[in-house]
Computed example of a mutant assay.
Amino acid sequence: MVTEARDRVGGNITTVERDGYLWEEGPNSFQPSDSMLTMVVGSVLKDDLVLGDPNAPRFVLWDGKLRPVPSKPTDLPFFDLMSLGGKLRAGFDALGLRPPQPGREESVEEFVRHNLGDEVFERLIEPFCSGDPSKLSMKAAFGKVWNLEQNGGSIIGGTFKAIQNRANSQKPPRDVRLPKPKGQTVR
């Protein structure tokens, strides 16, 4: 017997065909940090590791139309997934021009809505988030982004501070057995 909370089996993974397009939805992936790659290389999974293509386009189905997700900063002003007001809100909020943070740990949804606006959450984060973003801890799920805000007062301020710190720090040599991912995810 197979039980499933949804009307179909497969959990987050499904294949959809619509309007002449075929795409996969929901496969989980992870960030290829050196600590994660060290664990994979040291296990029997080493030969099954598939690195994501950093140049592969990503799309979100919004308002009945597949829309490209910006892949680099120069795409931001021109993509049609968000309104001009949503883009401006996200930009100003990322700089730290927003209401103060609540005095408690935020969920992914709260953090993104607070720091980047509703449109960023609904159109760029929620479609890619496995699990319920209203219950998922931002600090636990996206610790690097959470730390940027904590350390720099804003996401952009934290990014500049992290770049500065990286330039001034000495890193130990990287394990030569680890693959060198060009992309941001492993599938």
Rank of each mutant, 00 (worst) to 15 (best):
Q170H: 11
A167L: 06
E149M: 07
T159W: 15
S130Q: 04
Q101D: 15
V145M: 15
L124C: 07
F111L: 06
K182D: 14
C129D: 01
R174H: 12
R89M: 07
F121T: 01
N168I: 07
E126Y: 02
R177F: 03
S137Q: 08
E149G: 04
T185S: 11
G117Q: 10
V145W: 12
Q184Y: 14
T185R: 12
C129L: 02
N151H: 12
P127V: 00
V120Q: 03
R98L: 00
I155C: 04
R166L: 14
P133D: 01
N168R: 14
V120M: 09
A167S: 04
R89F: 04
E122F: 08
S134K: 14
K87C: 02
N165C: 08
Q170S: 13
G143W: 09
F111Q: 05
R177I: 02
R187K: 12
I155W: 04
S169D: 07
E149K: 11
V186N: 02
F121V: 01
E110N: 04
L178M: 00
G91E: 08
K135Q: 15
G157Q: 07
A140S: 14
S137T: 08
L88I: 10
S154H: 02
E119Y: 03
K87N: 03
P100F: 01
G183K: 11
R89E: 13
E110S: 07
K180Y: 04
L136K: 15
R104E: 06
I155V: 14
I156W: 08
D93G: 12
P102S: 11
P173Y: 06
P100Y: 00
D132G: 00
E106P: 01
A162H: 07
A141G: 08
Q101L: 15
K182A: 14
F128V: 08
P102G: 11
S154C: 03
G143F: 08
K161A: 08
S137H: 09
N115K: 10
L124N: 05
P99M: 00
R166D: 12
E119G: 02
P181N: 07
V145I: 15
P102D: 06
G157L: 05
G91V: 10
G158E: 04
G152S: 00
K139L: 14
K182G: 15
G117E: 09
D175M: 02
P99T: 01
G157K: 07
P99L: 03
W146I: 04
K144S: 15
